[in-house]
Protein backbone atom coordinates (compact mmCIF):
# COMPACT_ATOMS: atom_id res chain seq x y z
CA UNK A 1 0.00 0.00 0.00
CA UNK A 2 1.18 3.45 -0.96
CA UNK A 3 0.73 4.93 2.52
CA UNK A 4 3.29 2.47 3.83
CA UNK A 5 6.02 4.61 2.40
CA UNK A 6 7.11 7.17 4.99
CA UNK A 7 8.02 9.66 2.26
CA UNK A 8 4.54 9.53 0.76
CA UNK A 9 3.03 10.03 4.21
CA UNK A 10 5.37 12.94 4.84
CA UNK A 11 4.44 14.53 1.51
CA UNK A 12 0.72 14.17 2.22
CA UNK A 13 1.18 15.61 5.72
CA UNK A 14 3.10 18.58 4.33
CA UNK A 15 0.46 19.19 1.67
CA UNK A 16 -2.37 19.04 4.20
CA UNK A 17 -0.77 21.62 6.47
CA UNK A 18 0.22 23.84 3.52
CA UNK A 19 -3.26 23.91 2.03
CA UNK A 20 -4.90 24.91 5.31
CA UNK A 21 -2.20 27.22 6.65
CA UNK A 22 -1.79 29.38 3.55
CA UNK A 23 -5.37 30.74 3.15
CA UNK A 24 -5.64 31.22 6.91
CA UNK A 25 -2.21 32.86 6.77
CA UNK A 26 -3.60 35.38 4.30
CA UNK A 27 -6.03 36.55 6.97
CA UNK A 28 -3.22 36.57 9.53
CA UNK A 29 -1.29 38.90 7.20
CA UNK A 30 -4.26 41.13 6.29
CA UNK A 31 -5.28 41.56 9.90
CA UNK A 32 -1.70 42.02 11.13
CA UNK A 33 -1.97 39.03 13.43
CA UNK A 34 1.53 37.67 12.77
CA UNK A 35 2.55 37.84 16.39
CA UNK A 36 -0.81 36.40 17.35
CA UNK A 37 0.00 33.31 15.29
CA UNK A 38 3.36 33.05 17.01
CA UNK A 39 1.85 33.28 20.48
CA UNK A 40 -0.71 30.60 19.70
CA UNK A 41 1.97 28.30 18.35
CA UNK A 42 4.25 28.84 21.35
CA UNK A 43 1.40 28.04 23.71
CA UNK A 44 1.05 24.68 21.98
CA UNK A 45 4.34 23.45 23.51
CA UNK A 46 2.78 23.91 26.93
CA UNK A 47 -0.13 21.85 25.66
CA UNK A 48 2.30 19.16 24.51
CA UNK A 49 3.93 19.06 27.95
CA UNK A 50 0.57 18.81 29.73
CA UNK A 51 -0.63 16.13 27.31
CA UNK A 52 2.48 14.02 27.91
CA UNK A 53 2.20 14.57 31.65
CA UNK A 54 -1.42 13.42 31.77
CA UNK A 55 -0.92 10.78 29.08
CA UNK A 56 -3.51 12.15 26.68
CA UNK A 57 -3.14 12.74 22.96
CA UNK A 58 -0.52 15.34 22.12
CA UNK A 59 -2.78 16.68 19.41
CA UNK A 60 -5.60 17.27 21.90
CA UNK A 61 -3.27 18.93 24.40
CA UNK A 62 -1.85 21.26 21.77
CA UNK A 63 -5.31 22.07 20.41
CA UNK A 64 -6.69 22.96 23.83
CA UNK A 65 -3.73 25.15 24.84
CA UNK A 66 -3.72 26.88 21.45
CA UNK A 67 -7.43 27.57 21.82
CA UNK A 68 -6.95 28.94 25.32
CA UNK A 69 -4.12 31.21 24.20
CA UNK A 70 -5.84 32.36 21.00
CA UNK A 71 -9.06 33.12 22.88
CA UNK A 72 -7.24 34.93 25.68
CA UNK A 73 -5.29 37.04 23.23
CA UNK A 74 -8.24 37.94 21.04
CA UNK A 75 -10.32 38.83 24.12
CA UNK A 76 -7.58 41.03 25.56
CA UNK A 77 -6.92 42.74 22.23
CA UNK A 78 -10.44 44.13 22.26
CA UNK A 79 -9.86 45.79 25.63
CA UNK A 80 -7.11 48.26 24.87
CA UNK A 81 -4.13 46.40 26.29
CA UNK A 82 -0.70 47.11 24.80
CA UNK A 83 -0.88 44.05 22.63
CA UNK A 84 2.72 43.56 21.58
CA UNK A 85 3.77 43.51 25.23
CA UNK A 86 0.92 41.21 26.28
CA UNK A 87 1.66 38.83 23.44
CA UNK A 88 5.35 38.84 24.24
CA UNK A 89 4.69 38.04 27.87
CA UNK A 90 2.12 35.33 27.21
CA UNK A 91 3.80 33.65 24.23
CA UNK A 92 7.21 33.32 25.77
CA UNK A 93 5.92 32.42 29.22
CA UNK A 94 3.87 29.62 27.68
CA UNK A 95 6.90 28.42 25.75
CA UNK A 96 9.13 28.57 28.84
CA UNK A 97 6.62 26.81 31.11
CA UNK A 98 6.15 24.20 28.41
CA UNK A 99 9.88 23.53 28.16
CA UNK A 100 10.27 23.37 31.94
CA UNK A 101 7.20 21.16 32.17
CA UNK A 102 8.58 18.70 29.66
CA UNK A 103 11.83 18.45 31.62
CA UNK A 104 9.88 17.14 34.64
CA UNK A 105 8.66 14.19 32.61
CA UNK A 106 11.68 12.06 33.40
CA UNK A 107 9.72 8.85 33.05
CA UNK A 108 9.25 9.27 29.33
CA UNK A 109 12.08 9.89 26.95
CA UNK A 110 10.95 12.77 24.84
CA UNK A 111 12.60 14.15 21.83
CA UNK A 112 11.79 17.79 22.41
CA UNK A 113 13.27 18.74 19.07
CA UNK A 114 10.45 16.82 17.39
CA UNK A 115 7.91 19.25 18.84
CA UNK A 116 9.98 22.38 18.38
CA UNK A 117 10.96 21.70 14.76
CA UNK A 118 8.58 18.98 13.67
CA UNK A 119 9.21 15.39 12.70
CA UNK A 120 7.45 15.00 9.40
CA UNK A 121 9.23 11.77 8.51
CA UNK A 122 7.66 10.09 11.53
CA UNK A 123 4.07 10.89 10.53
CA UNK A 124 1.82 7.87 11.07
CA UNK A 125 -1.42 7.00 9.29
CA UNK A 126 -3.28 8.20 12.36
CA UNK A 127 -1.40 11.52 12.21
CA UNK A 128 -2.34 11.83 8.55
CA UNK A 129 -6.01 11.40 9.38
CA UNK A 130 -5.76 14.08 12.07
CA UNK A 131 -3.87 16.47 9.77
CA UNK A 132 -6.27 16.12 6.84
CA UNK A 133 -9.28 16.18 9.12
CA UNK A 134 -8.06 19.42 10.69
CA UNK A 135 -7.09 20.94 7.36
CA UNK A 136 -10.48 20.05 5.87
CA UNK A 137 -12.25 21.60 8.86
CA UNK A 138 -10.24 24.83 8.55
CA UNK A 139 -10.82 25.11 4.79
CA UNK A 140 -14.53 24.44 5.22
CA UNK A 141 -14.77 27.11 7.95
CA UNK A 142 -12.95 29.67 5.80
CA UNK A 143 -15.03 28.89 2.71
CA UNK A 144 -18.27 29.10 4.68
CA UNK A 145 -17.45 32.44 6.33
CA UNK A 146 -15.35 33.86 3.47
CA UNK A 147 -17.43 36.91 2.55
CA UNK A 148 -18.16 37.83 6.15
CA UNK A 149 -14.52 37.32 7.18
CA UNK A 150 -13.36 39.53 4.37
CA UNK A 151 -15.85 42.28 5.18
CA UNK A 152 -14.93 42.20 8.87
CA UNK A 153 -11.23 42.28 7.96
CA UNK A 154 -11.74 45.29 5.72
CA UNK A 155 -13.67 47.26 8.31
CA UNK A 156 -15.54 46.16 11.44
CA UNK A 157 -17.95 49.09 11.00
CA UNK A 158 -18.88 48.08 7.44
CA UNK A 159 -19.49 44.59 8.79
CA UNK A 160 -21.75 45.82 11.60
CA UNK A 161 -23.75 47.98 9.20
CA UNK A 162 -24.43 44.89 7.07
CA UNK A 163 -25.50 42.81 10.05
CA UNK A 164 -22.23 40.87 10.36
CA UNK A 165 -20.74 40.60 13.85
CA UNK A 166 -16.96 41.04 13.45
CA UNK A 167 -16.37 39.46 16.87
CA UNK A 168 -17.92 36.23 15.67
CA UNK A 169 -15.69 36.28 12.58
CA UNK A 170 -12.69 36.87 14.81
CA UNK A 171 -13.74 33.79 16.77
CA UNK A 172 -13.84 31.75 13.55
CA UNK A 173 -10.27 32.79 12.78
CA UNK A 174 -9.17 32.07 16.34
CA UNK A 175 -10.61 28.57 16.15
CA UNK A 176 -9.07 27.94 12.72
CA UNK A 177 -5.71 29.14 13.97
CA UNK A 178 -5.74 26.80 16.95
CA UNK A 179 -6.60 23.84 14.70
CA UNK A 180 -3.84 24.66 12.21
CA UNK A 181 -1.29 25.02 15.02
CA UNK A 182 -2.29 21.69 16.52
CA UNK A 183 -2.07 19.79 13.23
CA UNK A 184 1.11 21.52 12.08
CA UNK A 185 3.25 20.64 15.12
CA UNK A 186 4.22 17.28 13.70
CA UNK A 187 5.12 18.82 10.32
CA UNK A 188 7.05 22.02 11.05
CA UNK A 189 7.10 22.23 14.86
CA UNK A 190 5.84 25.04 17.07
CA UNK A 191 8.71 27.42 16.30
CA UNK A 192 8.07 27.51 12.56
CA UNK A 193 4.28 27.30 12.30
CA UNK A 194 3.97 31.07 12.05
CA UNK A 195 6.32 30.94 9.06
CA UNK A 196 4.00 28.53 7.23
CA UNK A 197 1.16 30.97 7.86
CA UNK A 198 2.90 34.14 6.81
CA UNK A 199 5.64 33.44 4.27
CA UNK A 200 3.47 31.91 1.50
CA UNK A 201 0.84 34.65 1.89
CA UNK A 202 3.50 37.35 1.77
CA UNK A 203 5.01 35.77 -1.36
CA UNK A 204 1.59 35.67 -3.03
CA UNK A 205 0.80 39.33 -2.35
CA UNK A 206 2.67 41.02 -5.25
CA UNK A 207 1.10 38.54 -7.69
CA UNK A 208 -2.49 39.14 -6.61
CA UNK A 209 -5.21 41.63 -7.46
CA UNK A 210 -7.94 40.05 -5.35
CA UNK A 211 -8.00 38.38 -1.93
CA UNK A 212 -9.12 35.08 -3.48
CA UNK A 213 -6.20 34.99 -5.85
CA UNK A 214 -3.84 35.72 -2.99
CA UNK A 215 -5.24 32.88 -0.87
CA UNK A 216 -5.08 30.38 -3.75
CA UNK A 217 -1.58 31.43 -4.79
CA UNK A 218 -0.44 31.23 -1.18
CA UNK A 219 -1.75 27.66 -1.02
CA UNK A 220 0.10 26.75 -4.23
CA UNK A 221 3.32 28.34 -2.97
CA UNK A 222 2.98 26.59 0.40
CA UNK A 223 2.37 23.23 -1.28
CA UNK A 224 5.41 23.76 -3.52
CA UNK A 225 7.49 24.64 -0.47
CA UNK A 226 6.28 21.55 1.40
CA UNK A 227 7.11 19.16 -1.43
CA UNK A 228 10.30 20.98 -2.46
CA UNK A 229 11.46 21.18 1.14
CA UNK A 230 10.83 17.49 1.67
CA UNK A 231 12.79 16.58 -1.45
CA UNK A 232 15.63 18.95 -0.58
CA UNK A 233 15.91 17.69 2.99
CA UNK A 234 16.01 14.10 1.76
CA UNK A 235 18.78 14.90 -0.68
CA UNK A 236 20.79 17.26 1.57
CA UNK A 237 20.10 15.35 4.79
CA UNK A 238 18.80 18.47 6.55
CA UNK A 239 15.95 18.75 9.09
CA UNK A 240 12.72 18.71 7.08
CA UNK A 241 10.57 21.35 8.84
CA UNK A 242 13.17 24.11 8.61
CA UNK A 243 13.99 23.10 5.03
CA UNK A 244 10.33 23.55 4.04
CA UNK A 245 10.35 27.03 5.53
CA UNK A 246 13.64 27.81 3.74
CA UNK A 247 12.11 26.88 0.39
CA UNK A 248 9.08 29.10 1.12
CA UNK A 249 11.43 31.95 2.04
CA UNK A 250 13.37 31.47 -1.20
CA UNK A 251 10.14 31.65 -3.22
CA UNK A 252 9.26 34.82 -1.32
CA UNK A 253 12.67 36.33 -2.16
CA UNK A 254 12.39 35.45 -5.85
CA UNK A 255 8.88 36.94 -6.08
CA UNK A 256 9.98 40.13 -4.33
CA UNK A 257 13.01 40.64 -6.52
CA UNK A 258 10.99 39.75 -9.62
CA UNK A 259 8.16 42.16 -8.84
CA UNK A 260 10.58 45.00 -8.06
CA UNK A 261 12.43 44.38 -11.33
CA UNK A 262 9.17 44.29 -13.30
CA UNK A 263 8.06 47.54 -11.73
CA UNK A 264 11.45 49.20 -12.38
CA UNK A 265 11.38 48.06 -16.01
CA UNK A 266 7.78 49.20 -16.36
CA UNK A 267 8.75 52.66 -15.11
CA UNK A 268 11.66 53.10 -17.49
CA UNK A 269 9.96 51.85 -20.66
Amino acid sequence: MMLDDFLIRAALAGLGVALAAAPLGSFVVWRRMAYFGDATAHAAILGVALALGFSVSVFAGALVMSLVMATAVSTLSGRGFAMDTMLGVMAHSALAFGLVGVSFLSGVRIDLMAYLFGDILAVSRGDLAVIWGGAGLVLALLAWRWQALLTATLSPDLAYASGIDPRREQLVLTLALAVVVAVAIKVVGVLLIAAMLIVPAAAARPLSATPERMAVLAAIIAATAALGGLAASFRLDTPTGPTIVCVAALIFAVVMVGSHLTRALGNTS
Binding site: W30, A148, S162, A202, R205, A209, P211
Partner: peptide, 17 residues
Protein backbone atom coordinates in the same frame (compact mmCIF):
# COMPACT_ATOMS: atom_id res chain seq x y z
CA UNK B 1 -7.24 49.19 3.41
CA UNK B 2 -4.14 47.39 4.61
CA UNK B 3 -1.52 47.36 1.83
CA UNK B 4 -1.18 43.59 2.23
CA UNK B 5 -4.82 43.14 1.20
CA UNK B 6 -5.27 43.20 -2.58
CA UNK B 7 -8.68 44.67 -3.35
CA UNK B 8 -9.96 45.65 -6.76
CA UNK B 9 -12.91 47.99 -7.09
CA UNK B 10 -15.07 45.20 -8.53
CA UNK B 11 -14.18 42.87 -5.66
CA UNK B 12 -14.91 45.57 -3.11
CA UNK B 13 -18.36 46.15 -4.56
CA UNK B 14 -19.03 42.42 -4.06
CA UNK B 15 -18.76 42.76 -0.28
CA UNK B 16 -20.49 41.66 1.83
CA UNK B 17 -22.69 39.97 -0.78
Amino acid sequence: IDPTLPMSVARFLNLPR
